[in-house]
């Protein structure tokens, strides 16, 4: 290759590098990124060496008390600074809150509000601190309060609100300025089932509109219903992340449990148990529960046995590919989980 060849190649290389850098920056501007982030409170570990790239949609942070969920959220929101590593939210850095909080809405787990304010005044005051003129602040406040179903209580003092109403007004405050990222710390705590269902629908609507909704929760059976992604935390470490099914698939060392409801479970169990990937087959109240290390081979085998033996199958369903099972596999059942 001549010098002339090199000089003609170099601009292309630079172009590719620039394109790559541009693509990386564009990707970063659409995600919440944690790059080797650690946070220590003196000697105490908050989180350690966390790497995350959270896409739009609903992401649930799941973990026992002290696992680092709130630390992670506070780092996202710039209320804490990482001891090591870097955090960016859609390309914005927490060191510049005046820019970042145009994009972020954060409902903390604390129920403390400035005293003496009604729900409407609380949200309006918050928006006025943003810099909105009074009329715009009131418009946005009403819209948010109506969206969380609190319009008829907006004129009452927040101090007199029930726990559920406080959760709603916090949510209204967090979403009033129409942020692209909503961080919600235990938003379902204290809500009755109907309110939880309404909030879940609201989260889904917001996620469908392209928002990043990051939720921490202890209510594990609802994580499955609301989450697109899940981040499992324990002792300050991310022990698994991704889509719930994906997380489950990554756990190759843990067998998948499948529930089969059929007319001859004993026969089916005896045939299935001969396969090397099946590690357990048991009957519980007429349902055959099979644990297998290879779900794909299991389903093929099941089809074959059903055809060969003429077993009538009513249903086949994964028995443990929900976040609770994943959580117990990865963290164990002693993590202080409250259901």
């Amino acid at each position: 290759m001549s010098v002339a060849d090199v000089t003609t190649v170099l601009p292309d290389t630079a172009g590719i590098a620039a394109d790559t850098a541009g693509a990386v920056a564009a990707a970063a501007s659409r995600r919440i990124l944690f790059d080797e982030v650690s946070k220590f409170y003196g000697e105490v570990l908050g989180i350690n060496r966390v790497n995350l790239a959270i896409p739009p949609g609903i992401t649930s942070l799941v973990g026992p008390n002290g696992s680092g969920k709130t630390t992670l959220m506070n780092l996202m929101a710039g209320l804490l600074r990482p001891t090591r590593g870097r955090v960016s939210v859609l390309g914005l850095v927490p060191e510049r809150p005046e820019e970042m909080f145009r994009t972020i809405g954060y409902a903390t787990q604390h129920d403390a509000f400035p005293p003496g304010l009604t729900g409407f005044e609380l949200v309006t005051s918050y928006l006025r601190v943003h810099g909105y003129p009074r009329a715009d602040a009131e418009t946005l406040a009403w819209a948010a309060i109506e969206r969380v179903g609190l319009a008829d209580a907006a004129g009452r003092k927040v101090a007199g609100y029930s726990k559920g109403m406080r959760q709603r007004i916090k949510l209204a405050q967090a979403m009033a300025h129409r942020p692209s990222v909503l961080i919600l710390d235990e938003p379902l705590n204290g809500l009755d089932p109907m309110a939880r269902a309404e909030m879940t629908i609201l989260f889904r609507d917001l996620a469908a509109a392209g928002l990043h909704v990051v939720v921490s929760t202890h209510i594990l059976h609802e994580v499955d219903r609301i989450s697109d992604q899940v981040v499992l935390l324990n002792g300050g470490y991310v022990v698994a992340e991704g889509e719930i099914e994906g997380v489950r698939d990554e756990m190759e060392e843990h067998p998948v449990q499948v529930a089969v409801l059929c007319d001859r479970p004993q026969l089916l169990a005896s045939r299935l148990f001969l396969a090397d990937h099946v590690v357990e087959a048991k009957l519980e109240r007429g349902v055959l529960l099979v644990r297998t290390r290879d779900a794909d081979r299991f389903y093929l085998l099941l089809n074959r046995v059903v055809l060969e033996e003429g077993v009538r199958v009513e249903s086949v369903a994964p028995a443990d590919s929900d976040v609770l099972a994943v959580y117990h596999y990865l963290i164990g059942g002693e993590g202080g989980v409250q259901r």
């Binding site: 929101a77 909080f101 403390a112």
Partner: peptide, 12 residues
């Protein structure tokens, strides 16, 4: 009062 974050969460 644990209310300082009220201000810190605004783009100010």
């Amino acid at each position: 009062d644990r209310s300082l974050h009220f201000y810190f969460l605004a783009p100010v």
